[in-house]
């Protein structure tokens, strides 16, 4: 019902932010995620950041976040891979 994609917040200025989506950078409105900091992964829908993602959980479930961080690491010339724990299937809440 609603497409939303995770992206990394790389710049912030008031309620405007710039996110990076694997080499695609766009301006988003961050008024709904005031707690998000530069470097956080946020969920983007229709030009708005709608939530800050819990980084640990996100890395486990999102292949593309893993990919992106891997790519960033590769670029930085590091050889180590992101530590991955077994995925958590969620618990009854």
């Amino acid at each position: 019902m609603c497409l939303a994609v995770p992206a990394k917040l790389i710049e912030q200025d008031g309620q405007q932010g710039i996110v990076d989506l694997h080499g695609n950078r766009l301006r988003v409105n961050t008024m709904m995620t005031p707690e998000a900091q530069t470097g956080d992964w946020i969920l983007i829908h229709a030009g708005f950041a709608i939530e800050r993602l819990d980084p640990e959980a996100a890395r486990e479930t999102w292949a593309l976040i893993k990919d992106a961080e891997q790519a960033a690491e590769d670029q930085a010339g590091q050889s180590g891979s992101v530590a991955r724990t077994n995925r958590n299937n969620g618990g009854i809440v």
Partner: peptide, 19 residues
Amino acid sequence: TALVNQYREAVRPEGNPRA
């Protein structure tokens, strides 16, 4: 029967208060 949140990286119990 249960309520299970398998999207915990993005979904909080109370939702997004600002939105």
